[in-house]
Nucleic acid binder design. Structure first.
Lengths: 193, 193
DNA sequence: TATCTAATTAGATGTATATCGAATTAGAGG
DNA sequence: CCTCTAATTCGATATACATCTAATTAGATA
């Protein structure tokens, strides 16, 4: 299930009138006029709400003679309500703004010379972040680095270690405490390499 | 009332930005600036969304030095998301507009004379409906009544049978077809006696 | 076909809210 | 006490939407 479906379901249920309709229909099917009366609203308003609930699949209808009865689909309701708990488990991989791996690799190829050093620091934010992630790819999580130590590491790639060190902090790849540097958890990074 | 809690939870989750925040936080805590960056939004916007999610209890926060980390409360999320499935099972009894039995009885006592006739037709809608439900309490579902027959039935309670007969239709207790009258299913009634 | 009623659509209106930029607050650390 | 930055608040704006009334459609039945 993707983002829009999740949003639409929760938007649909996130209205007092529609929750009252759900509550009524849980006791059994009803037709539009009956719902309108019970809630003190106009039939057209009920149509409006019913169509929202039907759009997200938790209500279906069946005609009996001149009257259309509306039914609550409890299975669909259960499925939809629990979908938010499964978010991120599977699929939904492209909805954060991480880049595809091949895009990252081509950025690295463009900015890293054949001898492994950094040509220029990218000015575009996205590309800059990919390069920063690349530069620190073999630093260790949980380990603290002295400023000198970190400078030496960066200098292997580029002479302007001060700019790069500052960028690593500003882009939340690293955290500075008492002059010591440490990697932030990857969850904080704008890009993971 | 329970209704508002349900509405607020679904309203809170029913927004693409907030679902993306939930998705991010499911992988681990993040601070405001990181979220803002990842979603391409301003920090003030994140504050806005975080506070909505916190209001419904699915996010909490912990300060670490200068930075506040936001955590997703998965237990609360699970509890809240499933609440809609329990609607009507217990509690939430006052949210449809049915009255308590004792209230109905006291209304009947006020308007029905000691000889069993109706004193005056209530003008308040709720009371009027209770009385109407009382008057037809021994008519049979599925049976059709001729107009004369229905008039006679009503006259046992009150002389102004025309007004009451008209009200029975207007309030959806009964249905008229070709001059014949029939009870509507109880699900249509505004009040059941 | 003509008629009846439930349901829907269309248009209008008022309220809610997502977002931003600017100003302010809160707390950590010198 | 002073400074710095993350977080929040405030005011403005633009969009979304719940509800109504009036008009129209859909379907059953005579």
């Amino acid at each position: 299930m993707q983002l829009d479906k999740l949003v639409n379901y929760h938007k649909a249920v996130g209205d007092p009138t529609r929750i009252r309709i759900i509550s009524l229909l849980k006791k059994g099917p009803l037709h539009g006029q009956a719902i309108a009366y019970k809630l003190g609203l106009q039939p057209s308003t009920i149509t409006h709400h019913i169509s929202k609930l039907r759009d997200v699949g938790i209500i279906y209808q069946r005609r009996q003679g001149n009257i259309i009865y509306f039914y609550l689909d409890l299975e669909r309701l259960e499925y939809s309500s629990k979908a938010i708990l499964r978010i991120g488990d599977e699929g939904m991989k492209n909805q954060d703004n991480n880049l595809q791996n091949k895009d990252k690799l081509s950025i690295v190829k463009n900015f890293i010379n054949s001898d492994g050093t950094l040509n220029i620091i990218p000015s575009q934010r996205k590309k800059k972040n990919v390069i920063l992630a690349y530069l620190i790819r073999d630093l260790q999580h949980g380990k603290t680095y002295q400023e000198k130590e970190l400078n030496e590491h960066i200098k292997k790639y580029h002479e302007d270690y001060a700019t790069i060190r500052r960028e690593l902090i500003m882009q939340h790849f690293m955290y500075r405490q008492n002059g010591e540097y440490e990697l932030n958890p990857k969850e904080m990074w704008p890009v993971i390499f």
